[in-house]
Amino acid sequence: MSAVTLILSQVEAGDAQAAEQLLPLVYEELRRLASAKLVQEKPGQTLQATALVHEAYVRLVDQGKVQSWNSRAHFFAAAAEAMRRILIEAARRKRRAKHGGKRERIELSEVHIGVDAPPHELLAIDENLQKLAASDLQAAEVVKLHCFAGLTIEQVAEVLGISARTAYRDWAYGRAWLFRAVEQDHRQARD
């Protein structure tokens, strides 16, 4: 049994603390997958969060053993968080490189993964996403799972155990909320 499967079994058995061990494992696997993909792909190609997260799921989770909705939710929550961190790190490096820093060769900074947004915008989105989480956790979770783990809204609904209709509303609301917040940031930056 893989380590991730084992942890998910513990989560299923009610050990909530086990879930905390998921993130580093999933994070490592996603980074590794992304780097491996980059070697194979032509430069300038785009990798998709969807494909990466799903591939990680298939590789890490023994599907014969772990199948409860609860443990899947934990997996995708960890994957979304891991993906978010990878993207934010990439965006930060890219920005440093632009601002005259040494142009290091870092594979991940060469590609877009997941959300189609320029690095500075990605960072702004991430900051505001944390603010959204403070006022409406569920809407923020929906956005995070949809954007960073690449789940469709239906899949997000299933993972969070809410109806698709609710998830769509949360998504529409979260997106509008974030868009407005990022707009305001831009305006303040100009002023």
């Binding site: 785009t46 959300v115 956005v143 868009f179 990022v182």
Partner: peptide, 20 residues
């Protein structure tokens, strides 16, 4: 109304990247 406006302006904001 502010949020509805923001939603209408958002366009491709946060749209998933197009396929490789």
């Amino acid at each position: 109304e502010d949020l509805l406006g923001a939603g209408a302006r958002a366009g491709n904001f946060l749209a998933p990247v197009s396929s490789k």
